[in-house]
Write a protein that binds this DNA or RNA. Structure first.
Lengths: 119, 119
DNA sequence: GTGTTGTTCAACCATACGGTTGAATATAGG
DNA sequence: CCTATATTCAACCGTATGGTTGAACAACAC
């Protein structure tokens, strides 16, 4: 039961882990777009962009409607909501517990050195 | 400026796109864990699990504190919040517009055939 | 010191990913 | 019919990913 969910999250997060595909989603947030329109902004072949579209479709993030010879895509919000929901689980870590965490980190940082996010 | 943000989202979403790493995060949600403890539930070598931990650390999702000879990890909520924020942008698509979308999809499905996820 | 424990490193391997190109497909328009 | 347009498919290529193994390193125990 959970496996299926896991696999879905795998493909969804993987799809989101590429700036090209995220940009495409952003584009689709403005309304439906054909594959060609989605591909246009990118400096890559149409075939490559088509693969990205397919990845998004595969993850269930978009829906495709073959309208004549063009393929019109639109956002399919379901899986995005799933990913969002998954992440929401951690919300308490940056709300409820953030102050506690911050305090711990400050203690730690004071103990070790100046430190920061990036060494 | 946005590039940096993009790269961060790349690594964060990529890190999240693996069930092993998500399970590790879930584990860390229960409190700090050593690398060994994180690795234990999985049927893979410690070296492999260590790579996953490193991926999470690389994405900024966890923090590591070398305590003696053990490496203790804990959640670092910042990047998770970033990913969550990114996804939140789409919230309106499954709240405001979901009903509109649903209506459109129902029309479409009625027009083409019975259903349509898998051909 | 020796030995054991926790973790990483390095080399390697198979497979997946993202890109290319050129051919194939399907539809629209003359 | 023929041609142009929109898109995919197939084969290929370089690199990244996720896994293995065995050696190395660091810190505790004796």
């Amino acid at each position: 039961m959970v496996e299926q969910h896991d696999v879905q999250l795998d493909t969804v997060f993987h799809a989101l882990g590429d700036a090209t595909r995220r940009t495409m989603l952003l584009q689709l947030a403005g309304g439906e777009q054909t594959v060609g329109q989605l591909a246009e902004p990118f400096a890559m072949s149409l075939a490559a962009a088509s693969k990205h579209v397919k990845a998004l479709e595969n993850a269930g993030l978009i829906r495709r409607e073959v309208r004549g010879r063009t393929h019109v895509c639109r956002l399919a919000p379901g899986p995005l909501a799933s990913a969002h929901a998954w992440l929401s689980f951690y919300e308490r870590f940056w709300t409820d517990r953030l102050d506690v965490l911050e305090r711990l980190l400050r203690e730690e940082d004071a103990g070790t050195s100046k430190e920061g996010h990036e060494p």
